[in-house]
């Protein structure tokens, strides 16, 4: 029952195009798991958010198994340190070195290419850019700035870009929306698209679904894409991004999941599970643990 209309079919194709009912066949070959955070571990919202039931325990169980575990987030509303501290307060067994987030990755690129950014980012992530030269900007970095996405601030970024001979725009992720406790909210991708259209430029995406981003987590674990499973709530960026890189991708029915995701025209997850706890149950059961 192959449902994908157009999808990655590279090495390990037989496994990648497996039907939902037998994604479990591949579990035995797994060496590592990559988890998205918001919408998988917790739901964001007022007061920092709340853990999704069973997820604290699920992380503990993966760590107690023979699988490696890393976290890949497009979270850019806080520094990595503060973000990890928040999850620790929720009870998660997690450390900064296990978390891959776009801001530190962007800082590395800016330094390597001698770029001076105009930042359209959330105030709470600004400290990540403390060491970056920002006067006389020659590129724009856009991240999920939430309330700071005003017409005025977007226009300021636009004016920096339009006066550059060759506009350079970095987008920290390209998500469409995410779920907060009071509803769905527009994500950075929407504002990236607005600036792309205004300036006729294509943004360089740092974070999921960029292959480089998955690569950095896998390199850290020392494993190959076909040995890794991504679990996320964002069908296109988590699941599709991982699949394009040669990993397998599971979608959880938590966070921003919508039933229509399961009949998406271009991305079909290798499997769908109700939540992280169920995913971990199935994985550990099939590994005999």
């Amino acid at each position: 029952m192959y449902r994908g209309a157009s999808r990655y079919a590279g090495p390990d194709t037989a496994c990648l195009i497996m039907a939902e009912k037998d994604w479990k066949e591949c579990i035995k070959n797994l060496k590592g798991v990559v988890l998205d955070m918001c919408g998988v571990l917790y739901d964001s919202g007022e007061g920092g958010g709340t853990p999704i039931p069973g997820s604290v325990e699920a992380v503990k169980r993966i760590k107690a198994s023979d699988l490696q575990l890393r976290f890949c987030t497009n979270e850019t509303q806080a520094t990595r340190e503060k973000f990890v501290a928040k999850l620790q307060r929720m009870g998660f067994d997690i450390s900064v070195s296990e978390v891959f987030s776009p801001a530190p990755a962007t800082v590395a690129i800016l330094k390597e290419r001698n770029l001076r950014p105009h930042l359209l980012v959330h105030d709470d992530v600004l400290p990540e850019f403390d060491d970056v030269e920002k006067t006389d900007p020659n590129c724009v970095v856009v991240a999920d700035a939430a309330d700071k996405f005003s017409y005025q601030n977007l226009n300021d970024a636009f004016r920096v870009l339009i006066q550059l001979e060759k506009p350079v725009l970095f987008s920290l992720g390209r998500g469409r929306y995410y779920k907060e406790t009071d509803g769905l909210k527009l994500d950075v991708g929407v504002y990236m698209k607005a600036l792309e259209y205004a300036c006729d430029v294509e943004a360089e995406v740092v974070g999921k679904p960029a292959p480089m981003f998955f690569q950095s987590a896998l390199t850290d674990m020392g494993i190959q894409p076909q040995q890794a499973l991504m679990i996320g709530d964002d069908l296109v960026n988590d699941v599709g991004g991982a699949q394009n890189f040669g990993m397998r991708g599971l979608q959880v029915r938590t966070g921003k999941y919508r039933p229509s995701d399961e009949k998406h025209p271009t991305v079909t997850a290798d499997g769908y599970v109700n939540d992280l706890a169920e995913a971990v149950d199935i994985i550990l059961k099939h590994r005999g643990q």
Partner: peptide
């Protein structure tokens, strides 16, 4: 329209916002 000219310089038109909403909602 992508942008228009204002007395204080160029300013974003409706096009970028429409494009953003199109992207968000497919």
């Amino acid at each position: 329209a992508r942008y228009y000219k204002r007395k204080d310089g160029l300013a974003l038109g409706p096009g970028p916002f429409v494009t953003g909403l199109e992207y968000a909602t497919d």
